[in-house]
């Protein structure tokens, strides 16, 4: 078991080194990527600024609490961008062009290889920026701070795992369809639900983003947990949703592999 873990860590280390070299070569890319992300964050913050110019609270969330939530959301999303985003964009080519063949022959899980090949290290900047925004508004938002910042890290990983499972759920259909662009786009359309606190949604949508498509797990649930704490029911529910999603994805992956015909051969 220890050997197996070491093998995976070694492979991951090599992938990381390759990506680091690639990022160092394309320095202009770093600047432009950071600019795009900054504008995106600016648009999200501006949207709430405009709304709060017309009202004091939105569904019980003060301006500072929403900014605290946005900080967590930006960091969580940036973490996903660093580790997985590029790999999911390349996922459909893996299946369509038969590139998955080579991964299936390796003595390591093909999904691990498929989802760890490319990293977007420029997004580290966004994780830090998200943390700064959270830290700036933590006090006014009512976050107690101190050792609770460790929880901040844990909730970030929770959000990352939820995003990973959902993105996979939207990508796996490539085994059944010719192109998966529509599903990928659909993911990003639904992703918009993650950019607002879940309590502002009507019951039906809220139920959807807390269960079948848990986009609220990316930033909203972590923010609520850090600000007010969750009930035992919510903790159990969140765990249940993520376990179910993982199970469904595992089944779909196995079924998908069963259909895979190696298009390139």
């Amino acid at each position: 078991m220890k050997l197996k873990i070491k093998r995976y860590l070694d492979v991951y280390g090599i992938q990381f080194k390759n990506n680091l070299v690639r990022e160092a070569v394309y320095r202009t890319n770093f600047l432009t990527a950071v600019t795009v992300d900054l504008i995106w964050m600016g648009v999200e913050v501006s949207l709430f600024s405009i709304l709060y110019a017309n009202t004091q609270t939105i569904a019980g969330w003060s301006r500072e609490q929403v900014y605290f939530f946005l900080g967590i959301f930006f960091s969580s999303d940036a973490l996903f961008t660093i580790l997985f985003q590029r790999n999911f964009w390349a996922f459909s080519d893996l299946v369509n062009k038969g590139e998955l063949d080579i991964l299936l022959t390796k003595p390591i899980h093909p999904l691990f290889l498929a989802l760890s090949r490319s990293m977007n290290l420029t997004a580290v900047f966004n994780v830090i920026l998200g943390l700064i925004i959270s830290a700036r508004y933590a006090g006014p938002a009512g976050f107690t701070g101190g050792w609770h910042w460790l929880e901040w890290g844990a909730w970030l990983i929770f959000g990352l795992y939820a995003a990973l499972q959902m993105r996979f759920l939207f990508s796996i259909w490539i085994f059944w369809t010719d192109r998966s662009w529509a599903f990928s786009r659909l993911y990003y359309q639904f992703f918009a639900f993650a950019t607002k606190p879940d309590t502002i949604y009507p019951k039906a949508i809220r139920y959807l983003i807390l269960t079948a498509l848990p986009f609220a797990f990316i930033g909203s649930v972590p923010a609520r947990a850090l600000l007010h704490g969750l009930s035992a029911y919510e903790y159990v529910g969140a765990a249940g949703v993520l376990i179910s999603l993982t199970g469904i994805n595992s089944i779909l992956w196995k079924k998908g592999l069963g259909r895979y015909q190696s298009a390139s051969s």
């Binding site: 709304l51 017309n54 009202t55 609270t57 939105i58 569904a59 019980g60 607002k196 502002i200 949604y201 009507p202 949508i205």
Partner: peptide
């Protein structure tokens, strides 16, 4: 949803 939050909830 934003309008719902502002008017119905707020």
């Amino acid at each position: 949803v934003l309008w719902y939050a502002l008017f119905q909830l707020g």
